[in-house]
Computed example of a mutant assay.
Amino acid sequence: MKNRTVINIAEVAKRTLSLESTAVSDLKQYINGDFEQAVELIAHCTGRLVVSGIGKSAIIAQKIVATLNSTGTPAIFMHAADAIHGDLGMIQQDDIILCISKSGNSPEIKVLVPLVRNFGNKLIAMVGNIDSFLAREADLILNTTVEQEACPNNLAPTTSTTAQLAMGDALAVCLIEWHGFTAGDFAKFHPGGTLGKKLYLKVGDLSRLHQAPKVSRDSSLKEVIVMISSGMLGVTAVLEADGDLAGIITDGDLRRMLEKGIPGDHVTAENIMSRHPKTIQEDELAINALEMMRQHDITQLLVLKDKRYIGIIHLHDLIREGII
């Protein structure tokens, strides 16, 4: 077993990041007519984008496919090695092929490309060698040439795969803007998990899980306490006789009243309520409610439907749903 080489870990890490960030920045010079035509070709495609590669490029291809599918561009992954053993059958007439390779000369690529060309599908090459077999055979080239790998032996795909990933993101973001893909569209493809909830969960979805605690202006202190306790939210709305919102009373308001030594015999809701409560409409996103709570340093908001009070959304609701 070889003796371990003593290295400066921080310096190696910084050198790696410097090499890779430079490589990504250098890609800007390769955003040319071919790149623009590739975006337009994919944007107008009536089929799917079939993304293929071998080795580490295949892993990058899968990530690009995942990004495209989640942002409205239909895409599938086809492993270059499996393609020549039956997976070519997944290619349909209107599909476009994106083949990813650093060298553009690997044996699997040299077998795959002529077969794709025979199908008549458009072929886009994301390649790090524009003099390669893949580059010569492609209709369009996305150039991902890098000067060197971050690997000290200049062998392990590091800088090159980072460049491929960045070029794939550039392609995906252009398509997002081309199609006018919105946060609402994104939510349709991400209904699960915290991300999905941030994009589609509405204030009304959470407020409906609770009672809508309320008292009138002339409600007694006892009635206020009972309402706050029964609602288990530490708060109650105060309503006018016609149902309009008059104010809010929190358990903090009750504590402050007691600290002042005010006799409770003749205290009504009107005497202790805050007259300008923070409110939010039921059709607002729950994430917006969280932002309001943070902005005003509070833990609940009164929920309105148009101008009518319908319930409460509490910080605990947002925590429970994983919004925070």
Results as ranks from 00 to 15, higher is better:
residue 1 M to V: 10
residue 2 K to L: 14
residue 6 V to R: 10
residue 6 V to T: 13
residue 11 E to L: 11
residue 12 V to H: 11
residue 15 R to Q: 11
residue 16 T to E: 08
residue 17 L to R: 07
residue 20 E to Q: 09
residue 22 T to Y: 07
residue 32 N to M: 10
residue 33 G to T: 02
residue 34 D to R: 08
residue 35 F to H: 01
residue 43 A to L: 03
residue 45 C to H: 05
residue 47 G to T: 12
residue 58 A to F: 00
residue 65 V to M: 11
residue 70 S to Y: 12
residue 70 S to T: 13
residue 71 T to G: 15
residue 71 T to V: 11
residue 72 G to K: 02
residue 75 A to K: 05
residue 79 H to Q: 14
residue 80 A to M: 12
residue 91 I to R: 00
residue 92 Q to G: 09
residue 92 Q to P: 07
residue 93 Q to S: 15
residue 95 D to Q: 10
residue 98 L to D: 02
residue 99 C to T: 12
residue 104 G to P: 11
residue 106 S to P: 12
residue 107 P to V: 03
residue 111 V to N: 15
residue 113 V to Q: 04
residue 119 F to K: 15
residue 120 G to C: 12
residue 120 G to K: 04
residue 127 V to L: 10
residue 128 G to D: 06
residue 131 D to S: 15
residue 133 F to Q: 08
residue 133 F to R: 11
residue 135 A to I: 05
residue 137 E to R: 06
residue 145 T to S: 13
residue 145 T to G: 07
residue 159 T to M: 06
residue 159 T to D: 08
residue 161 T to P: 03
residue 167 M to Q: 08
residue 177 E to R: 06
residue 177 E to M: 05
residue 178 W to C: 05
residue 195 L to M: 10
residue 200 Y to A: 12
residue 206 L to H: 00
residue 213 P to M: 08
residue 215 V to C: 08
residue 220 S to L: 03
residue 220 S to I: 00
residue 227 M to K: 06
residue 230 S to D: 08
residue 236 T to I: 02
residue 241 A to R: 12
residue 241 A to T: 15
residue 243 G to C: 10
residue 245 L to R: 01
residue 248 I to A: 04
residue 255 R to W: 13
residue 257 M to A: 03
residue 265 D to R: 05
residue 266 H to P: 04
residue 266 H to V: 05
residue 269 A to H: 02
residue 270 E to Y: 01
residue 272 I to T: 00
residue 284 E to Y: 13
residue 284 E to T: 09
residue 291 E to M: 14
residue 294 R to I: 11
residue 299 T to R: 12
residue 299 T to H: 14
residue 302 L to C: 11
residue 309 Y to C: 00
residue 311 G to A: 01
residue 313 I to G: 00
residue 319 I to C: 13
residue 322 G to N: 14
